[in-house]
Design a protein around this nucleic acid. Structure first.
Lengths: 180, 180
DNA sequence: CTCAACTATGTCATAACTGACATAGTTGTA
DNA sequence: TACAACTATGTCAGTTATGACATAGTTGAG
């Protein structure tokens, strides 16, 4: 019954206790590279996880209208997370607006399409440079069993993705320059 | 005000008139590779597009409880589509369940993770083979301005994506085999 | 000491999406 | 001619996601 967002939260809590606010920050970076959620969604999901006994919290006096709540994974939550991890991912539909625009690009002025892809390429190269900096901060792949293995492996995926995307943008730009 | 789904429908109708049923079939393949929608979503969106004057239809006697409706793009719809095509795509959040599982994979048994990635790799190689067959049916890139340019360019993206993904799966499997 | 920025939790309306249910004409084959 | 497979349109309930609104304690700089 737990949603994928629920497991995303459990995956972060498996690395240490967090407040909802901390979780929302993690869902922007680094988890946000592959799963995002606003804080409103996170607080709601946390209440469901708590009702299911997968997380618990300690209330503390602190900021916010209801004080501060530090959430942690329960033993039950750890079991559920471990089971979920190796189950085949249910495939989500692809929804890629740039590719959809490309499908309809034959209708547009080549120069405007060229500009759009040049902008996309610049964005991908920027992200690629950022990921390369992050990779340089690792001393090769961490050992499996180290939480940092998860960070490194997802970073490798991001690196590979940005290169694929940049390559495709280059290909599109070459096609476009031929038709000008 | 038109949603991205609305533009996906307009992009298909720009290639010729279609019934809602035909649109739903297109949203499975080939458009489904980058944008999907169930028929229930499509019929609802078609009503909105019609209210906005972006599409029109001819009613015919035929199957279905309300007969058959053949939709076409209006002049206004064509203008809206052409404007939308080269506007910078609004970025959608990434939500990739396999990468999320990878982030938490350090918690799992390596052998189970290995199996999951082996399955993923097989799926990507199958899709890659299918895309390669499709590419072979083209005689090089169609000219820009030809609707088939859209099909070919998106196919190139799919090809590149599947290769990136397969490469990453290979890398994961290599990491996993080292830690066994 | 004051104020801005940050930490912190929550609700609500709306939109987008999924899957099940409901209905019915058309076409081809055994 | 009976039946299955396909064509065809639509509703509805429930889930997921987005963005605005509301509230309030803590910390550090000027």
């Amino acid at each position: 019954m737990t949603s994928t967002l629920g497991f995303a939260i459990l995956a972060v809590l498996a690395r240490g206790e967090r407040t909802g606010y901390d979780l929302a920050a993690a869902m922007r970076r680094p988890v946000g590279y592959f799963w995002t959620a606003g804080h409103s969604q996170i607080h709601a999901e946390l209440q469901k996880l708590r009702a299911g006994g997968l997380v618990g919290f300690e209330a503390e006096h602190g900021p916010g209208p209801q004080g501060r709540k530090v959430y942690h994974l329960t033993a039950e939550g750890g079991v559920a997370l471990r089971e979920w991890v190796t189950e085949p991912p249910r495939e989500r539909p692809e929804r890629d607006e740039l590719v959809l625009k490309t499908y309809a690009s034959w209708l547009a002025e080549p120069e405007l399409v060229r500009r759009m892809f040049a902008d996309q390429l610049a964005a991908h190269e920027e992200r690629l440079a950022e990921y390369e900096r992050q990779e340089a901060s690792f001393d090769g792949p961490p050992a499996f069993g180290d939480p940092r293995f998860g960070n490194y492996a997802t970073l490798r995926c991001g690196l590979s993705y940005e290169r694929h995307r940049a390559d495709w943008c280059h290909w599109m730009l070459a096609q476009l320059s031929e038709s000008l």
